[in-house]
Design a protein around this nucleic acid. Structure first.
Lengths: 122, 122
DNA sequence: CTAGGACCTGACGTTGACGTCAGGGTCAAG
DNA sequence: CTTGACCCTGACGTCAACGTCAGGTCCTAG
């Protein structure tokens, strides 16, 4: 059983973040008699997953909806529907990002052509 | 010359957003003698671009750095460096999103296999 | 048994991109 | 010349995912 600082270090997040995840119902912990949190090893992976979902733009309630499937490996058709919805949302985001990337690339190309004089040929 | 509401409608953003962009130095406007903003047609495209950059995760200062190139079509090597930096940032984001997407897909597959009983074969 | 590092619970602070409300001008139409 | 839609400037509110500080407890090495 890991202490909170240990989990934080291994997962690359702050201690505060872990307590926040607990607050949001995303992460449970056993408690020692004195009230300190103890996590199983699996918590590290769970936290990494949570981070990944945050990075994908999901809010904590979205993650909350998705997590049971991860934990149990089972999902009701309803939950699968949610998962698919979130995945499609990510797809839309990727599409937007790619568009923005192309826009920037275009600007970069144009900028390189019109680049000032002091760029010698070599 | 367009009024602010017109620009907002065409670009699909709120009037408040346009005033905010001006505050951030992202969007200029002429003023009528009475102080009302008047925009050229080009403002609509400009706003769309700003939105696209926001969607790509850039903050307003980042957009501010990038905008002159768009406006003038010219860029110093320094500005190009910034543009490339931003583009690479977007690339990293896309990579993260794709990873998250794959993770969700995996969960969906597993979930579909382990799906409860009441899914008849047909 | 004691020092100090890790942990605890509140609870307020932060940041960005606006939303929203208050109080008051502006302007084309009838 | 008035109505009603549109515009103006502050200025405070919001939301999420934490940061940070205060004041106190725990625990482990020496």
């Amino acid at each position: 059983m890991l202490r909170i600082g240990e989990v934080a270090a291994r997962a690359g997040v702050s201690v505060r973040a872990l307590r926040y995840y607990e607050e949001q119902g995303l992460l449970e912990a056993e408690r020692t008699p004195s009230g300190q949190r103890r996590y199983p090893e699996s918590a590290v992976g769970r936290v990494r997953f949570i981070q990944q979902m945050y990075a994908a733009g999901l809010g904590s309630t979205d993650v909350l909806e998705v997590l049971p499937c991860v934990h149990t490996g089972r999902a009701t058709p309803e939950m699968i529907a949610r998962l698919v919805e979130q995945r499609d949302g990510i797809d839309r985001q990727v599409a937007e990002l790619v568009q923005a990337r192309e826009r920037l690339d275009e600007i970069i190309r144009i900028g390189r052509d019109h680049v000032p004089v002091d760029a010698p040929v070599g």
